[in-house]
Amino acid sequence: MSGERFRPARDRRRRVGAIFRMVCLVSIGFSMLVLAILLVDVARDGLHWLSWDFLARYPSRIPERAGIKSAILGSLWMMGLTAAISFPLGVGAAIYLEEYAPRNWLTRLLQTNIGNLAGVPSIVYGILGLAIFVRFFGFGRSLLAGAATLALLVLPVVIVASQEALKAVPSSLREASYGLGATKWQTIRHHVLPMALPGILTGMILSLSRAIGETAPLIMIGALTFIAFSPTSPMDPFTVLPIQIFNWTSKPQAEFHDLAAGAIIVLLVVLLVMNTGAILLRNKFQKRF
């Protein structure tokens, strides 16, 4: 027996461990640093433009008169419509796939495709939206066309998140319900869905957080650059926060770049509120088994 085969080499192993820890620390430190630089830079440029007036005024060619009212309202409309379209479609599809669909090659094919769709670049959805919603359905360059496009964009994520939430509901619950004579629909309606809802809502809000920052597909379907009125119906032309930011950064005057920074802060706050909402919903209604 060769006891020499085993060398404890404790110092070396500890050193390797310490190095690995440092590498991890540097990675997190680096990302935090970049984020901090970005936030500080944006805050330094934009903070002094922030005021209630900034939120309540329409865009203008004169920086002192410019605001983001039409962009904020456009974004709110857009989120409301996108949620209204993608929630029933996404949850419906997830319920079908999880609860009703037979496990065969077709379902597996569908499943793989949904996963793939989640990775398609957003501009592709823009092209699709332009062809289908703007031209074919004749929605024009309206809020509705934009929301339908964004709904398509977030659908894969909504479906997958909802499926995961449905999967997490223990099957003992379904069996108990069947055992008491409930039909499949009654079981889903009264037991499975309420139990899965926190997870579904979290997925929904997170996908809306993605949609609110989307610019490319909306530019593709023709969101407009200068809008100085509030949309009053889903068929109205629109602008949204990211487009207003993009438009201001492409102006030559430096004041507009600062205004864009101000609008970025507003967008970040809206995002933060949405994500906080997702966490609160989850914590409030989550049940553990």
């Binding site: 009212k69 409309w77 409301g80 949620a83």
Partner: peptide, 14 residues
């Protein structure tokens, strides 16, 4: 929730 979001957005009009 969804209709409410619409309602909130609708407040911009008028």
């Amino acid at each position: 929730l969804a209709p409410l979001a619409l309602l909130v957005a609708g407040c911009g009009g008028g």
